[in-house]
């Protein structure tokens, strides 16, 4: 396979996946932190993310709203997580933007009207990035919220997809992202399929978008199946150990 070829004539990608195949998905619901009210760890291939949820607790003065709860999110990208090792400040543009995306996504997921005058804090740590760390962060937050027992409308599942060599590929790794093609980030509610997060910077035709979007939805479904199984396994184990 030549270096510029991202899908071989046999239909395999650089890391041996099919175009519609997601990377190995591993997750742990709860038990990541002693202090947090909910926590989760998510691995999508080599991309690893941790999420902690604190709350609901008494809202900070000034931020308090009387009609619904307040949601905050903070993301940190570990210095060793990227190929070029560098420390990022708390106000790094990239992480602040991701935190905002996550917060807005979950504001539509959490039943915030149940948490009047309370505050829910989400903290995400990206431990390793190999493409798709935004999706991993969203998935980790979703599992941590479930673990914390916070009322949510539906599971929010996120995945990325691209379009290379005339076909969509899902859950791209860093090598595929570096190719500089299309990158679509999609966060959907698992059951209603309603889109909560959508992010894409490139200009593409509606046909290409449609194809990429559908591939991404299918990948979200695969991720959801894996996440749901993990949640159920954890819950069943805890019920039995009672």
């Amino acid at each position: 396979m030549s270096k510029t070829e991202f899908v071989s004539p046999e239909g395999f990608r650089i890391d041996g996946r099919r175009p519609s195949e997601i990377r190995t998905f591993r997750c742990q619901v709860g038990g990541v932190s002693q202090n947090a009210d909910g926590s989760a760890y998510v691995e999508m291939g080599c991309t690893k993310a941790l999420a902690y949820v604190y709350g609901p607790k008494e809202a900070r003065r000034g931020a308090m709203k009387t009609q619904c709860g307040v949601l905050t999110c903070e993301v940190s990208l570990a210095p060793f997580s990227t190929a070029d090792r560098r420390k990022r400040s708390r106000y790094d543009r990239q992480t602040v933007e991701l935190a905002l995306t996550i917060r807005q996504a979950f504001e539509s997921s959490i039943l915030l009207e149940l948490y009047q005058r309370a505050q829910i804090d989400m903290f995400v740590h990206i431990l390793e990035t190999d493409g798709g760390h935004k999706a991993a962060a969203i998935n980790a937050c979703n599992l941590a919220l479930i673990d914390a027992g916070i009322n949510i409308r539906d599971s929010l599942v996120a995945c990325s997809a691209g379009y290379i060599d005339g076909r969509p590929i899902v859950d791209m790794n860093q090598a595929e992202i570096n190719a500089g093609g299309v990158e679509l980030l999609l966060g959907v509610f698992a059951r209603t399929r309603k889109v909560s997060v959508i992010e894409m910077d490139s200009k593409i035709t509606p046909e290409v978008f449609q194809e990429t979007y559908e591939a991404c939805i299918a990948a979200c479904r695969d991720l959801y199946t894996a996440m749901e199984t993990a949640v159920n396994d954890t819950a069943l184990r805890l019920v039995h150990s009672k």
Partner: peptide, 20 residues
């Protein structure tokens, strides 16, 4: 049709967020 997706099946006896 769009309300409940048949592609997302109920997997195990416990209910999960969003399940009807």
């Amino acid at each position: 049709e769009d309300e409940q997706d048949k592609d997302f099946p109920q997997l195990l006896p416990l209910v999960t967020p969003g399940e009807r």
